[in-house]
Design a protein around this nucleic acid. Structure first.
Lengths: 218, 218
DNA sequence: GGAATAGTGTCTATGAGACAGTATGAA
DNA sequence: TTCATACTGTCTCATAGACACTATTCC
């Protein structure tokens, strides 16, 4: 029995939702040599208190970051998924801002989730499941906020939601939901951003409120 | 590393949501002797294709039934949860009709989920998590239908929802949701049931529709 | 002035929730 | 006749979604 942890680390890069993958070594010992796979690893029974620590440790080692949002996705098991033995992979998913990711992990490889090549093990299935979970949760939760940097304009936030959900939102309705209904953002006083027209107010996430909205929608 | 599967088998017994537990043997070899615990067991690597088969096999052996609704809940891991070793439990939850359960498993022990004694391992946490998942999902899905027998009246269905969700529903609104919105029930032509006043139409679940409503709310 | 962007006001259709009402059968 | 239960009709208020509008900056 092989027990591992796998992480689906998602980010928004050049207007596309992408996943962090790495190329498996070509050595003959490991299965699926040279193929793309999710970052993951074995549980360290002496140092890991639980698999949450395993995945945090794995992501820190492979990307150098501590993801602000990390959640267990599903546990994939079976005799066929690993050619070596009956195996069990506890899969997690995480969302990070692309700039922060690229800063701390220079050599990281990103691949669009909607156009993936064949991956090692059943990792295509795991990515698809993570993406559908994220898209579904984004309908009623502040999940996409974790794809943005610490500070952002409401237009950038809306664009993020639109890219994740793959559908247009109406500006007034979107702002009303974020500000009045959910109340998950607050102005950064006196900070503005200008692209083309007038200055846009810069906002940041209200972490306590965001968590509350999460709990409600579980 | 110990890898097991645990099942939270829920049913409605005497108007109360209850969970199936068994008493652990008093032999000195196993941990938590004499304490109540969830039914569960080890993966049989030679016969089980995946843990889904493990849990189906376990429930069949301990209760004699094949649950119509069975879903992976969460994977609980850690060094402290089993005194013997670092352990990993893939937890599932299932919903069954009480009469069918008691018929095929005469000696089964049921305990109210809202008033549990101290259980073995972290099984209190697992039950609580399963119950909150079920209560949450019952708000927007046909989950409670699986607690009823094959045929039922709409009043019985409403009573089931009310017991799971612990709140009253308005009869007209409830019927509208089941019949017009979700369309998950259909009349059993010519079959009626009478308790006190006029005859009540008997219904059955439309399994395809129920699954659709499930998918939508994922 | 025109194009692009920020931000606000308001209408309407839909739907959830609440109440009221009618019908049936048994004590 | 009264009570409990089955079942239906309809009103209202909250909300989501859509459109319209003004203001600001740069070309």
């Amino acid at each position: 029995m092989i027990v591992t942890v796998d992480a689906v680390l998602l980010t928004l890069h050049e207007q596309v939702l992408k996943v962090v993958l790495h190329t498996r070594p070509k050595g003959a010992k490991e299965p699926f040599p040279g193929m793309l796979a999710l970052p993951g690893g074995y549980v360290h029974e002496d140092s890991d208190e639980d698999t949450n620590e395993t995945v945090v440790r794995t992501l820190l080692r492979k990307t150098g970051i501590v993801s602000p949002y990390l959640e267990q996705l599903y546990t994939f098991t079976g005799r066929e998924r690993d050619p070596r033995d009956w195996s069990c992979s506890i899969a997690y998913y995480a969302l990070v801002n692309c700039d922060e990711l690229l800063e701390s992990a220079k050599g990281v490889e990103l691949y669009p989730v909607d156009d993936l090549p064949k991956l090692a093990f059943d990792h295509n299935k795991i990515v698809d499941y993570a993406v559908s979970r994220v898209r579904n949760k984004s309908n009623y939760s502040p999940l996409p906020c974790f794809l943005l940097p610490k500070q952002f304009t409401l237009t950038e936030l809306q664009r993020t939601y639109e890219l994740v959900l793959q559908k247009k939102e109406q500006k007034p309705n979107f702002r009303r939901k974020m500000q009045d209904e959910w109340q998950i953002v607050e102005e950064v006083p006196g900070v503005f951003k200008k692209v083309r027209g007038p200055e846009a107010q810069v906002y940041r996430l209200k972490p306590e409120r965001a968590l509350e909205v999460f709990e409600r929608g579980l």
